[in-house]
């Protein structure tokens, strides 16, 4: 397992290299250049030349890449064109919010989806099962921005509720922070809840049909033991797969949710940087998010072997 983990970590290197090249290349496709964006059209040739040299834009393409990536490797993501401040500290401080939002919505969706999925499987072809299936399909079909808009509309019209303005971090005031985060987390987690609910129902159903479950039942085990100690444990691999995939979706979804609820996270940072054409920030933040996304997928892969001892890695 340790050898496998190390090998998987080493395999990350070419993928991360590819990601960084891709992001760098795509940023180079942008019409116009950084210098024009910063100085505008009225700049003198001399000031243009000075800034071009300062950013190393007069160097060959591969040298520009290597100077950028060698900076990234030591934690220097460059500076923002708008503020002139280093990018990484801003990414890290905003990432804490995005991570909190992602984890909270994942937690809330599991809390609801896994029990409902199990109930639907156990009560197959009943009204409860049908209800859960409709809810789960609606969950995956309602776009988070549409749900957020409708939810805010209903809450404001019916209860005169408006999301609190201004962000308070978890460390500053945990209770107020939670009040701010619950609604965005619910909206963000709805699609994941739908997907996890569907997967839980279908895999638990599949496991319940297997021979070993019949044997356990024949030995007199209670239904609770059958479901929680045996069926659920064996159904966890596909559920975990969908959870791993959905965490990436959640991470992407934060771009929209943070915008709607005015939360100063990493997603909002990317969007603001795109609108301001602050491309070093876009480049750094997108690289960071892709890195986290790849790490999450690796963690999910490693969890498989922990959950299912039959899976061995050679």
């Amino acid at each position: 397992m340790i050898a496998y983990t190390i090998r998987r970590l080493l395999m990350l290197i070419p993928v991360l290299f590819g990601i960084s090249v891709f992001i760098f290349l795509i940023m180079k496709l942008i019409p116009g250049d950084v210098v024009s964006t910063m100085l505008g059209t009225e700049a003198t040739e001399e000031s243009r030349q000075q800034l071009t040299e300062q950013f190393g834009l007069d160097q060959p393409f591969y040298q520009q890449y290597f100077s950028w990536i060698s900076g990234v490797l030591v934690g220097d993501f460059g500076v923002s064109l708008r503020t002139g401040k280093p990018i990484l500290p801003d990414i890290l401080s905003r990432f804490s919010l995005t991570l909190e939002l992602t984890l909270l919505s994942a937690f809330l969706s599991w809390l609801i989806a896994i029990p409902l999925g199990i109930i639907a499987a156990v009560k197959r072809n009943t009204g409860t099962d049908f209800g859960v299936r409709v809810i789960s399909l609606l969950g995956v079909s309602v776009p988070n921005f549409a749900l957020a808009t409708l939810l805010l509309l209903v809450l404001s019209l019916t209860f005169s509720y408006y999301p609190p303005a201004g962000y308070v971090s978890l460390l500053e005031d945990p209770l107020k922070n939670l009040q701010m985060m619950v609604l965005p987390a619910i909206v963000l987690g709805t699609a994941m809840a739908g997907a996890v609910m569907r997967m839980t129902r279908s895999t638990v159903l599949e496991v319940l049909r297997q021979d070993f479950i019949r044997t356990i039942r024949a030995k007199g085990a209670s239904e609770r033991v059958v479901i929680f100690n045996h069926a659920l444990k064996n159904a966890m691999i596909p559920i975990l797969t969908i959870i791993g995939m959905q965490i990436g979706v959640l991470l992407g979804g934060t771009v929209i949710i943070e915008q709607i609820f005015s939360l100063p996270g990493l997603g909002q940072m990317v969007l603001t940087a795109i609108n301001q054409r602050d491309f070093p920030v876009v480049q750094g933040a997108v690289l960071f998010i892709a890195f986290v996304f790849v790490l999450i997928n690796l963690l999910v892969d490693l969890l498989y072997s922990y959950l299912d001892p039959r899976i061995t890695y050679k």
Binding site: V15, I26, F293
Partner: peptide, 22 residues
């Protein structure tokens, strides 16, 4: 491997970045 690289981005973020560039 090229597909792995494209898979390393959440869908909306990749679409957003490409649209921002183009």
């Amino acid at each position: 491997r090229i597909m792995d690289i494209l898979f390393a981005f959440p869908d909306i973020l990749l679409a957003l970045t490409i649209v921002a560039v183009l």
